[in-house]
């Protein structure tokens, strides 16, 4: 599903440039539940942005669903994002003046789905994350956990190949975090590839595979044993 070979990425800062990713090789198959672990500055967010087509890499190859990502223009990136990828962000990134239902249906709007169909599909997904009754509420009327579940519903609504989650529990308390992780696990159990970025061990340990990143290189890549329950509660 996702294949990365010798990926490099630098950011210019003033006259200097910081080499953030120093040759990453990573292969994620369909249906995997992977977490990228690393402290801040390890390059994990950069990796996710590149995988999510929100940013471009300097060197190396990136194949998404077998397609080599190269010379991507904005329009093509937008279409690929809409088709293959669903995003969940740490800060939720819901549009404040849109209701939960409208936020969820936004990707479908850009996909060109009719309004009626959009609302039906979105309502199904809101139901799936347990927020059907909150459909007409604005984001500021929802709790953090509820907002993140709306964001997850939005990520799922286009039936993407991969869900990319950037610190999905970073702004949540541990109970809410667990419920969000449970939701991601459910999604994964249904066959969806889920790609989580985190710096918390207990979040990572709930996934099936942990890739540890340090200073722009992968230091370990291992499968977890019993990913059903959190380690330290």
């Amino acid at each position: 599903m996702i294949k990365i070979e010798k990926l490099h990425k630098s950011y210019p800062i003033g006259k200097e440039s910081i080499h953030v990713l120093k040759g990453i090789d990573l292969h994620i198959k369909e249906g995997e539940f992977v977490s990228i672990m690393g402290s801040s500055g390890s390059g994990k967010s950069t990796l996710l942005n590149i995988v999510g087509l929100l940013d471009i890499h300097d060197e190396g190859n990136y194949y998404l669903n077998g397609e080599l990502i190269k010379d991507l223009n904005e329009k093509k990136a937008a279409i690929l994002r809409n088709k293959f990828l669903g995003f969940v962000f740490q800060s939720f990134n819901l549009i404040s003046y849109k209701t939960a239902l409208e936020n969820v249906s936004l990707p479908l709007y850009y996909k060109g789905v009719s309004r009626k169909e959009r609302n039906e599909i979105s309502m199904d997904y809101l139901d799936k994350v347990g927020l059907k009754d909150w459909a007409s509420h604005l984001p500021n009327e929802l709790s953090g956990g509820q907002k993140q579940r709306v964001a997850i519903a939005r990520a799922l609504v286009t039936k993407p190949k991969v869900v990319l989650a950037d610190e999905p529990t970073g702004a949540l308390d541990s109970i809410t975090s667990n419920s969000v992780m449970d939701l991601l696990k459910d999604i994964n159990n249904e066959g969806m590839t889920v790609f989580v970025i985190t710096h918390e061990e207990e979040i990572a340990s709930q996934t099936k595979r942990i890739v540890r990143l340090k200073d722009g290189v992968i230091v370990s890549d291992e499968l977890t044993k019993a990913p059903k329950t959190p380690l330290h509660v």
């Binding site: 999510g52 937008a78 279409i79 990134n93 549009i95 936004l106």
Partner: peptide, 16 residues
């Protein structure tokens, strides 16, 4: 800017 970023992340093209 942020709203536009969200829209782009969920699939809005620059033309949109």
């Amino acid at each position: 800017t942020k709203e536009l970023g969200i829209r782009k992340a969920v699939g809005a093209t620059p033309k949109d």
